[in-house]
């Protein structure tokens, strides 16, 4: 079975979603990621969705779940690289991904995490 790779960058984890997400894959990603956060004591999680051609309510919910689970495990989540067409469709759909921080790309996402971690945020949604 396919698995979404999870890379470690210092005290952060980078998840690059490159394949078309289906249910089983989304479930296994949630398992793998929570395990890895605990195992590596990661403080931040970056989810790169620049390769995703669409985000429907199922994937939206998955992203929200990952952010909530990470928060409980004391790690902050930033979703990066959402494509313009995907963002426009999400707005049309009425999905606003509440509680999820976003950044344009991996660099901007890492910088955002760095600032938040340096400030010692509790992981709540700020801005």
């Amino acid at each position: 079975m396919d698995r979404v790779p999870i890379l470690r960058l210092g005290d952060c984890l980078l998840v690059t979603v490159q394949v078309d997400m289906h249910d089983e894959l989304a479930m296994s990603l949630q398992d793998d990621l929570t395990n890895k956060i605990v195992a590596t004591k990661a403080r931040g999680v970056l989810i790169d969705i620049s390769a995703l051609e669409m985000v429907d309510s199922f994937i939206g919910r998955m992203l929200g779940n990952i952010a909530s689970m990470s928060r409980i495990l004391d790690a902050q989540t930033v979703v990066v690289g959402m494509q313009p067409a995907v963002a426009i469709t999400l707005v049309e759909l009425g999905l606003s991904l509440p509680g999820i921080r976003t950044a344009l790309n991996v660099d901007a996402g890492l910088a955002l995490l760095r600032r938040a971690l340096d400030r010692g945020d509790e992981g709540g949604y700020v801005d």
Binding site: E53, M54, A85, I88, T89
Partner: peptide, 17 residues
């Protein structure tokens, strides 16, 4: 257009689900 493609596949995805 890319946006319209994305809209129709997102709708398809919701309904398929």
């Amino acid at each position: 257009s890319l946006v319209d493609q994305t809209k129709v596949i997102t709708a398809a995805s919701e309904l398929a689900r």
